[in-house]
């Protein structure tokens, strides 16, 4: 890693260290009770003490998020391709996609829980997280599919390309950078959706990180809440990093966004 790169990594870490030390010092100096704001040291203790159960919950949340994200990409790209094949289909359906997007998930959650989640809260979580995550992939992919080069389109027509060939060899590759951008947003949203849905749908039967937070909150184990929160952040960072890596891998040879920045 070059000097600038390691500096970019060291700076936020240094800031975190200073912040944590200040937090620890202030909590001790002002004698703030632990159920209001626990010091970082007891959060670390909770993280270590409950690591097994927290890690299990993190895996559950990660699995649910991944599943919902995958479904969102499949549905998002699928509908985008359909919209691209038929304008009237797009006109008929797109508004509903928008309605689904703008309606706050917390408001839909109780309904979905009643319909599918009474016995299977995980199904409700999956559906809700998918709904939240689906729109950015859809709208970005639609835009990407439509922005394929006009002249390349003409060339495909000249060589008698079928719809399928045009889709696979021209439109989808053109859409890839925007699709991946949408997917990165969706990855974060899927996690948010999974957590929010679990808060609403949760019962003793659920076991994700959101439930750990709710449970610890009810028992005023605030340090454990923070520990679960830290796990949640770790999951989110993991998802983002994974998708960023995928984006680089797929685009690095050809797309402007993946080029090294010009020397200035």
């Amino acid at each position: 890693m070059n000097r600038r790169g390691s500096f970019e990594l060291a700076l936020p870490l240094l800031l975190a260290l200073v912040g944590l030390l200040a937090w620890e010092g202030l909590v001790r100096a002002l004698a703030i009770p632990s159920f209001v704001l626990p010091p970082p040291s007891s959060i670390v203790a909770a993280l270590v003490g409950d690591f097994a159960s927290l890690a299990r919950s993190a895996l559950v949340t990660l699995a649910m998020t991944t599943l919902a994200f995958a479904a969102a990409v499949v549905f998002g790209v699928g509908f985008a391709v359909l919209f691209c094949q038929s304008e009237w289909l797009e006109r008929a359906l797109y508004p509903y996609a928008v309605v689904l997007q703008v309606t706050p998930i917390v408001a839909i959650a109780p309904l979905v829980v009643i319909w599918v989640g009474i016995d299977h809260p995980d199904r409700a979580v999956f559906i809700l997280a998918t709904i939240v995550a689906f729109f950015p992939v859809l709208s970005n992919t639609v835009l990407g599919l439509k922005s394929a080069d006009r002249n390349l389109h003409a060339l495909f027509r000249l060589y008698g390309a079928s719809r399928w060939q045009t889709l696979v060899k021209l439109q989808l590759p053109s859409a890839l950078p925007l699709l991946l951008g949408g997917a990165k947003i969706s990855g974060g949203l899927a996690l948010i959706g999974a957590v929010v849905a679990e808060f609403v749908a949760a019962s003793g039967a659920s076991s994700g990180l959101a439930w750990r937070i709710a449970e610890a909150g009810n028992r005023l184990q605030v340090a454990k809440m923070f520990a679960a929160l830290a796990m949640l952040s770790a999951v989110g960072i993991g998802i983002h990093t994974g998708l960023a890596w995928l984006e680089r891998r797929l685009l690095h040879r050809w797309h402007e966004s993946a080029l090294p920045r010009a020397e200035e």
Partner: peptide, 10 residues
């Protein structure tokens, strides 16, 4: 065409 109009991904 006036531009080379190549597929950048290929």
């Amino acid at each position: 065409f006036q531009d080379a109009t190549l597929m950048p991904w290929a």
